[in-house]
Simulated assay, not measured.
Amino acid sequence: MICLKALSSPVHLPTLRRLNPASAHRVAAAMSSSSTAVAAPVEHIVLIKARPEAAASGAAAAMVSSLQALSTLVPGLAYIHAGPVLRLRSPAAEALGPTHLLHSRYATKQDLASYAVHPAHVAAVQGHVLPNALDTTAVDWVNAVPLPSPVSPGAAVRLTLAKVKEGVEVAQLVETVAAATKAAGEAKGAKVSFGENFSPARAKGYQFGMVAVFDSVEELDAVEGDGKVEEAKAAVRPLLDEVVVLDFVVEPAGEAQAAASL
């Protein structure tokens, strides 16, 4: 999958529109594949910069455990992973400095809204996240194309958050990513989800999100330098102003607690 690089400092950006029906049709055409179509998931990403003392004391591990436990406590939560960041892959990611993240999925925006106010989620945030986080960044999007991007234990995931250049609309970026991803052949088996952020309040200006899911870290690393991937990057890069790129691993259940303490 394309790993997007930052180009310059952030700028003040104009109000953006959502994909109109014609644009959505072009995206769907660009991303057509033999995969069985499924309902487009609503993606929820939270980047967490944990306090150093929280990591040292085990409080960060307890935070991860409290978030992961929501999988059995919150109705409508289709998928959740909480854990440490594996690698920061762009200058903007290094500047933001997240140490942990949460990635969850929902069938609808209403399911996400219900999760946000559920007592178990509120308790985890108030009891573990807020006391132990120096900073958080949150982005939500609906997958632009209804294609599956399942995440399995042991998967390696590349997360990209982007700001577009002044005068560029996010709809244009979404269409370009769709075409570039198709041209790259979904980069050696990567399963992707991407779309326009619809929750700007905690997004720090990031307007676009994407996850590319690989079966392993080795498969993720194998796309670096791939000719088709580099062509895809070149197609997308002119639209971008600032990009966060980072990697994380969805640990097998038996290893999740050990990873949480990293």
Results as ranks from 00 to 15, higher is better:
Cys3His: 08
Ala6Met: 07
Pro10Gly: 07
Val11Phe: 06
Val11Glu: 15
His12Arg: 12
Thr15Ser: 10
Leu16Cys: 04
Leu16Gly: 04
Asn20Asp: 15
Asn20His: 11
Pro21Arg: 13
Ser23Gln: 15
Ala29Met: 11
Met31Glu: 11
Met31Asn: 00
Met31Tyr: 00
Ser32Gly: 01
Ser33Gln: 05
Ser35His: 10
Thr36Ser: 11
Ala40His: 05
Pro41Val: 02
Val42Ser: 01
Ala50Asn: 04
Arg51Phe: 02
Ala54Gly: 04
Ala55Pro: 00
Ala55Ile: 14
Ser57Phe: 04
Gly58Val: 08
Gly58Phe: 11
Ala59Met: 07
Ala59Gln: 12
Ala61Lys: 12
Val64Ile: 12
Gln68Tyr: 02
Thr72Gly: 14
Thr72Met: 05
Pro75Lys: 04
Gly76Thr: 08
Ala78Val: 10
Ala78Asp: 14
Ile80Val: 13
His81Trp: 07
Gly83Trp: 04
Gly83Cys: 08
Val85Ala: 06
Leu86Asp: 15
Arg89Tyr: 01
Ala92Lys: 10
Leu96Ser: 10
Thr99Ala: 10
Leu102Lys: 09
Leu102Arg: 13
His103Gly: 05
Tyr106Trp: 13
Tyr106Ile: 05
Ala107Trp: 02
Thr108Asn: 07
Thr108Gly: 06
Lys109Tyr: 03
Gln110Tyr: 02
Leu112Trp: 09
Ala113Trp: 05
Ser114Glu: 14
Ser114Asp: 15
Tyr115Phe: 15
Ala116Pro: 04
Ala116Lys: 11
Ala116Arg: 14
Val117Asn: 06
Ala124His: 07
Val125Arg: 13
Gly127Gln: 07
Gly127Ser: 08
His128Gly: 01
Val129Leu: 14
Leu130Glu: 05
Leu130Val: 14
Pro131Phe: 08
Asn132Ile: 02
Ala133Val: 01
Asp135Leu: 14
Thr137Asn: 09
Thr137Lys: 10
Ala138Thr: 12
Trp141Pro: 03
Asn143Gly: 06
Asn143Tyr: 00
Ala144Gly: 01
Ala144Glu: 00
Val145Arg: 02
Val145Leu: 05
Val145Ile: 11
Pro146Asn: 08
Pro148Val: 03
Pro150Gly: 08
Val151Ile: 15
Val151Lys: 13
Val151Met: 14
Gly154Ile: 04
Gly154Glu: 07
Ala156Tyr: 02
Val157Asp: 06
Arg158Ala: 11
Leu159Met: 13
Thr160Val: 15
Leu161Val: 05
Ala162Asn: 06
Ala162Pro: 01
Val164Asn: 03
Lys165Ile: 03
Gly167Glu: 05
Gln172Pro: 00
Gln172Phe: 01
Leu173Val: 09
Thr176Val: 12
Ala179Ser: 15
Ala179Asn: 06
Ala179His: 09
Gly185Trp: 08
Gly189Met: 09
Phe194Tyr: 14
Asn197Glu: 04
Pro200His: 05
Ala201Tyr: 08
Arg202Met: 14
Lys204Asn: 12
Tyr206Trp: 09
Gln207Asp: 03
Ala212Met: 05
Val213Gln: 01
Asp215Ala: 13
Asp221Tyr: 01
Glu224Lys: 12
Glu224Trp: 07
Gly225Glu: 13
Gly227Ala: 15
Lys228Ala: 15
Glu230Ala: 13
Glu231His: 03
Ala232Asn: 08
Ala232Leu: 11
Lys233Gln: 13
Ala234Pro: 00
Val236Gln: 02
Leu240Ile: 02
Leu240Pro: 00
Leu246Cys: 08
Phe248Asp: 01
Phe248Lys: 09
Val249Thr: 10
Val249Asp: 03
Val250Asp: 12
Ala253Phe: 05
Ala253Ser: 07
Ala256Leu: 12
Ala258Lys: 11
Ala260Gly: 07
